[in-house]
Structure formats: structure tokens, C-alpha cells
Design a protein around this nucleic acid. Sequence first.
DNA 1: GCCAACGTTGGC
DNA 2: GCCAACGTTGGC
Length: 483
Amino acid sequence: MTDSDLSAPSQEEIAHRFNIPERKVKVQTLMKTLNDEEQKYCICQSTDCTSFMIACDKCEEWYHGVCIGVTQLDAKSIKHYYCDACRGKDPSLSIKYKTKKPWKDKFKSDSSDVDRTARDPRLRESGKAKKSSRRCGDCTACHKKEDCGRCDYCKDMKKFGGPNKMRQKCRLRQCANFYKKKKYKQESSDTVEIEDDTPTQCYGPGCIECARPGSKYCSDDCGLKLSKSRIYEMLPSRIQQWQSSPCAAEENNKRALESIRRKQLEAKTRLGDLDQRHKELDSLLERAKHLKIDPDQGGTETEDDLELSLYCVTCGSEINQRGALRHMEKCFAKFESQTSFGSIYKTRIEGNSMFCDFWNPQQKFYCKRLKVLCPEHTKEPKIGQDEVCGCSLVTNVFDETGELCRAPKRKCVKHFCWEKLRRAEIDMERLRWWMALDDLFEKERTIRMSMSNRMGVLGLMLHQSVDHDPMTPMTTPQIRDSN
DNA sequence: GCCAACGTTGGC
DNA sequence: GCCAACGTTGGC
């Protein structure tokens, strides 16, 4: 830190450094901040002051814009800000907004347009009322400049990807006073709409204060007090009710969990079997290593066989039967190399992964081809001159004779790449079962979530089943279904 | 009476 | 010309 860093910053510097409007900078408070790193602010009581903050003009406490729902744009139109705590203590306090300049206001439509139309005989007679505005211009909502992006009206907007069918202002920007209950009073020639400004009493337990505009409570504390007393009052009986009567949804969930558990066990067993098949293949290859080449095997094709031709399944060109497997294998590898399958996540499964998982630093992903079939990152093993083919011989296509093909591996056209394809077949099956297992884990998670929600405080407080005919008790599954 | 949907219009 | 959002209306 240099000397200049230690010197007292100017008001402008502080405003710039803390990203706050200059007029809100309380130099004394901030100087304290710079010297005392443990200073805590806002309702969140954190020491962080790197984001936009606004100070209460009554208690001079600083609040993060995000914590109290005031954006930097909103703050530009605020003249005096009073925090919730101060407004709770003194209901006469309300956030004061800057008024627009008269020359600008002259051409703007605001709440006065409605009144002006009602008052101004020229406008009334012409019937050409200006498009009115549903704004009082005083409440917090009227001064919000940004849409929340979460309410139904925001979600309808084009900018949030909605169909633009409702075409209404963001719920948080809807004027709190415009929708107040209206009273009508008869005046000499006209019926005039007036706002019902009768203050309502705060709903807080034992509180006799006036509720804040647009709220049932005089302060956040009163709202919390009522919520607390509701929980103390209602929760014990709800828990008792929950424990005394069986719940159909809970029973269904338990049955579903049992079924999922059975399926998971089956999947794990099948995966174990497939691992065993890999081991059997390894031992078969080991057995083949000790065999000697039989020069009579591998050249048993008749002349008819040699004349037979077929078409490659990949490129479609005509090939003779003898070299068909070799051609198709190479052709597949060529075309497969042209397409990449990748994911940014490395495979994490128990045992040997069936995926290639080669990290591609250019494309920044892990290769997700089957490892055994990946033509790009898996090298074909070199075949020695003495190696035998080793493929199990069969009769009637599927019946294994127990003998192995002893043709030279390099020349055997009948069983070209047989162990690679066998391994790929097993890995594909393993992949299917892993995916099934993943699906089952997700289902289990969802069910467990709904079970814990149902038994949670919110679930118990919000949902209740009433038996309208207690004289004829229902059978268990019909009693209660709180789903 | 409520509300989704939509035509319309003032402001930019 | 575009867009936010107001006022109206038909269906429920």
C-alpha cells in the first residue's frame, strides 16, 4: 500500500470506489469503515462494502441494494431513504422521491392525468382523455425502474422469452396505491372516484399501530411475530394429526422407493455379471496365447465364398466377402473419426470406465466414445506373427464347441477384430445399465425430496386434509393424500 | 366478478 | 417503427 492509498480519499473518490451515488456518501461513516475493517453493515451484517449501498437518512446505517431490493437505478430517484426498521419505529417516515422538473412533467402522463380529465371540463367534453397511468408516483413500486424477471407478467414479456399475451407491468412495479379499494362519492352534477385512505390496524399480535401502506403490518417485526405465533399455535396439532392418520401419498412413495431399490439391486447385479464377462474374455485371450497356430485353419473358404460380394454398411461400396469385415472396420473408424462426442465432465463410475475420456485441450472436453471403439485415441494393438485368432468356435451360430480358432490372427478374416467387438458389446450393455441406475437415483432423489417436503414445517402448515364424514371411516389408502 | 387475451396508443 | 403497458372484452 502506498502513501497515497493511506491518505484520506475525497468524497468523489469514495463515491466512485464504492459505486454509490455521491450525494449518499457519508464521509464520516466511510472514513470509519476504511480504518475499521470489522465494521458490519446492513441487515445481513456483513463487512462487505464492494457492491452498491444506500444509507438510511434516519439511523445512517448502510444497506446493500441487493439485500433491501433497491437498485442503483432506483436510488437515482430517491431523495430521502428510510430503512424498514426506522419506518417500523416511526410510521410517519416514508421514502421520499425526487420530483420531476415542472417543464418535463408538463408533458408526462402521471396520476394527475386521471384527475385532470375528471376536473378539466374541456377534456371531459371532448371525450379525448389522455392515456392514463396507473401510477401514484409516490410509492416504492412507482419508482422501481427494473423488472424483476420472475413474476408472471415479467415471464410473459418478450425480453424474458414470454409470449407477450398479458402485456402488463412487472408485479413489483405495479403501483401499491392505484389498486387500493376505491370509494365513490356523489358530488353536485358528477360521481367522483376517491381513494380509500382509511388506515388499517396492524395485524401484529397485540399491536395497535397503523399498517404501512400496501401492507397488513406496521413493521417486519410484527409480520414475523404473527408468523411465529401461527407456527406455535398450529404446528403441534398438525404434527399430531400427521402422526395419527396414515397418508396415502406417503405410502405410495414408500412403495415406489421399495420398487426403485429392487431395480437398483438388479442393475448392480447385471453390472457385476458384465464385469464377470470381461474377466471371462480376458481368460479366453490368455488361453489363446498358449495355443499354436494351425496352418489348416483360416483358409477354408470355397471358391463360391470368394466370389460372393456385399455392400459396406458405412460407405455403401461393393466389397468381396473375404475382406468385408476388415473393410467395414476401417471404414467405420474413418467415418467415426469425423464426428466428436464430448462432455466437459470426466466420467466418474465405479470400476473400469467404458468411455475413452481423452481430454481434448482445443475443444475443451472429454471424449465420450466407447474406449474400445475410439479410432482417434485408442491405438490398435500390434499383432505378433505367432498370435492365434482365439475366437470361440461355434456350431449352429450360437453353440460354442469349446474349441478356439487357431488361424493366424493377422490372416483370420472370419473373426477380424472379434475381441474388440465382444468388449464393445459388453461395454454398451454396461452403459445401458449405468444409465438405468442413474435414472433410478434421480427418481429416488425426487421421491425423497417430496417426502421430506411433506413432513417439513411448510408442508405441514400449508396442507391439511379434512374428513367430512368421520362417522364412516375410510380405508387406509383413501384417508389422506397430501400430494 | 375475475382474468386471460388482445387491440390500441403514447412515448421514445 | 418499436415497445411498454393501458383499457376493453369475452369466456368462465
